[in-house]
């Protein structure tokens, strides 16, 4: 995270160099716009197809999450169920979002394992830092564009571009590490740690089936890509296989995370 902040600061210095006395004003204006955008999105909150979970709706899920939250030293998070058949889970602020499709594909233990991963993000502070660092990407891109377009110095423009690329790489690496850390936290919260591995394997199978990779193994099924798959040059998420491998190492006492477990 320190690396990301250093890159942002360097970008700010570069804009100062590129625009001299106008630099601080431009920098403040861009930062203010990004901040306003972030605040607007933060205040908007969740609405639409979200159904707040109450204990009466799904006692096994509510109690399971409450127990894990207590174990993690967190207060009971807000849990929202998303009316979406595709299995999805994510978290923001102190909220965990689970799609209804998740419960179709996973059993109860596996669903709780996915919730534990999201609790891991809350416990590790990712739900607060991720949005800030994600907007940092936009800030870096805008700053770089301003530096390049105003173009007073080639070396400053090249430096700004390099910083933007470095930010992307550092962000992806940071994001991946936090995903592994959330898994690690989840393993400590779960009664059956193996359920996280099973959940990831089933979700991987689901994804593979959706993109048609299993069409040869299951000739009866003709899966299609129902929505466009996101592809990016720099992956910010570890693959299911990488996560499963790390989980197995952790469970079998490989000690790769031991220095981080308290």
């Amino acid at each position: 995270m320190a690396m990301l902040l250093i890159i942002l600061l360097t970008e700010a210095v570069l804009i100062g160099l590129a625009l001299s006395h106008v630099g601080p004003v431009v920098l403040a204006a861009i930062a203010l716009i990004v901040l306003m955008f972030y605040s607007f999105l933060s205040l908007r909150g969740a609405n639409g197809r979200y159904i707040p979970l109450s204990r009466e709706d799904m006692p096994w899920l509510y109690d399971g999450i409450a127990t894990m939250a207590r174990k993690a030293g967190l207060k009971m998070p807000r849990v929202l169920l998303l009316d979406e058949y595709v299995p999805l889970a994510y978290s923001f602020k102190d909220t965990v979002v689970l799609s209804l499709g998740l419960f179709e594909v996973l059993d109860r233990e596996e669903s709780l394992a996915v919730a534990a991963h999201e609790l891991g993000h809350i416990k590790n502070g990712d739900t607060k830092t991720f949005p800030v660092l994600a907007y940092g990407r936009y800030l870096t891109l805008v700053l770089t564009a301003v530096v390049v377009l105003t173009g007073r110095s080639l070396s400053v423009a090249v430096s700004a571009l390099t910083m933007a690329c470095l930010y992307e790489l550092a962000w992806a690496r940071f994001h991946k590490e936090r995903e592994f850390l959330a898994d690690e936290t989840a393993l400590r919260l779960l009664e059956t740690p193996m359920s996280l591995k099973r959940a990831l394997e089933e979700l991987k199978y689901y994804e593979d089936l959706r993109v048609g990779m299993r069409s040869n193994a299951l000739p009866n099924i003709e899966p299609e890509i129902e929505r466009k798959q996101r592809t990016s040059i720099i992956e910010t998420h570890p693959t299911y296989d990488e996560r499963v491998l790390r989980i197995l190492i952790e469970i079998n006492g490989g000690g790769i995370f031991k220095n981080r477990i308290q």
């Binding site: 159904i51 709706d57 799904m58 169920l81 058949y85 209804l100 179709e104 059993d107 089936l209 299951l218």
Partner: peptide, 29 residues
């Protein structure tokens, strides 16, 4: 389970089935 879920949702897209949210034994589904 994944296979069944995907196929049932494909049948929804074909217009042969429809999906609704219901709270029953075991929770919302």
């Amino acid at each position: 389970r994944s296979t069944v879920s995907i196929l049932m949702n494909r049948l929804c897209e074909r217009g042969l089935l429809k999906r609704s949210v219901e709270t029953g034994r075991g929770g919302m589904r």
